[in-house]
Amino acid sequence: SYVNAGKSWSNGAQFDLAFPIVPRLKASASANLFNERTPVDMTDGQNMQRTFRYTANGTFEWNGKDRGSVPGDVAQLQWSYNSPSREYQIRKGSWFDFSASYTHSLDRTLSLSGTFRYSGRTNQRLIAPLVEEISSRRREPEVQIKLQKTL
Rank of each mutant, 00 (worst) to 15 (best):
Arg137Asp: 01
Arg53Cys: 01
Ile134Pro: 00
Thr115Ala: 09
Ser28Arg: 08
Phe19Met: 06
Thr115Phe: 04
Lys92Glu: 04
Arg125Cys: 01
Ile21Glu: 04
Pro39Tyr: 07
Ser111Cys: 03
Ala56Phe: 12
Thr38Gln: 07
Arg139Lys: 01
Lys149His: 10
Ser69Pro: 13
Lys92Leu: 11
Ile145Lys: 12
Phe34Arg: 00
Ser8Gln: 05
Glu133His: 10
Tyr2Cys: 02
Arg53Met: 09
Phe60Lys: 07
Val74Ser: 14
Val74Gly: 10
Ala128Leu: 10
Gly45Thr: 03
Glu61Asn: 10
Arg137Met: 09
His104Gln: 14
Ser30Tyr: 10
Ser113Val: 00
Asn4Asp: 11
Ala13Ser: 12
Lys146Ala: 12
Ala18Val: 13
Gly58His: 09
Asn4Tyr: 04
Ala128Trp: 09
Arg86Met: 05
Thr55Asn: 12
Ile145His: 12
Ser111Asn: 09
Ser136Pro: 02
Trp79Tyr: 10
Ala13Glu: 01
Ala29Lys: 07
Gln46Arg: 15
Gly120Asn: 03
Asn32Glu: 03
Leu126Cys: 01
Gly64Leu: 09
Val70Asn: 07
Arg139Cys: 00
Pro23Asp: 09
Phe96Lys: 01
Pro84Thr: 01
Gln46Ala: 15
Asn32Phe: 04
Thr43Gln: 15
Asn57Lys: 08
Phe34Ser: 04
Leu25Arg: 12
Thr115Pro: 02
Arg139Asp: 08
Thr59Gly: 11
Ala18His: 06
Asp107Asn: 14
Ala100Arg: 02
Asn47Gln: 12
Asn82Gln: 12
Thr122Phe: 07
Ala27Asp: 03
Thr38Ala: 05
Asp73Ile: 05
Met48Asp: 07
Ser28Glu: 12
Ser85Cys: 04
Ser105Lys: 07
Ser83Trp: 05
Ser99Pro: 03
Phe19Tyr: 11
Arg108Asp: 00
Gln49Glu: 11
Trp9Ser: 09
Asp41Trp: 05
Leu126Thr: 05
Glu142Tyr: 04
Phe19Arg: 14
Tyr54Lys: 04
Gly45Ala: 09
Lys149Arg: 14
Gly120Pro: 10
Leu33Asp: 02
Gly114Leu: 13
Gln89Lys: 02
Val3Lys: 11
Val3Thr: 08
Asn4Met: 13
Val40Asn: 02
Leu147His: 03
Thr43Gly: 12
Lys65Asn: 15
Trp79Ser: 08
Leu147Asp: 05
Phe96Ile: 00
Ser136Glu: 11
Leu130Pro: 00
Asn57Trp: 11
Ala18Glu: 13
Phe98Ala: 06
Phe98Gly: 01
Asp44Ser: 13
Glu61Gln: 15
Ile21Asp: 08
Ala56Thr: 10
Leu110Glu: 01
Tyr2Phe: 13
Gln124His: 10
Glu133Asn: 08
Lys92Phe: 12
Gln78Ser: 11
Arg67Asp: 14
Val70Cys: 06
Ser111Ala: 13
Thr51Glu: 14
Ser113Leu: 07
Ala13Gln: 08
Ala56Val: 10
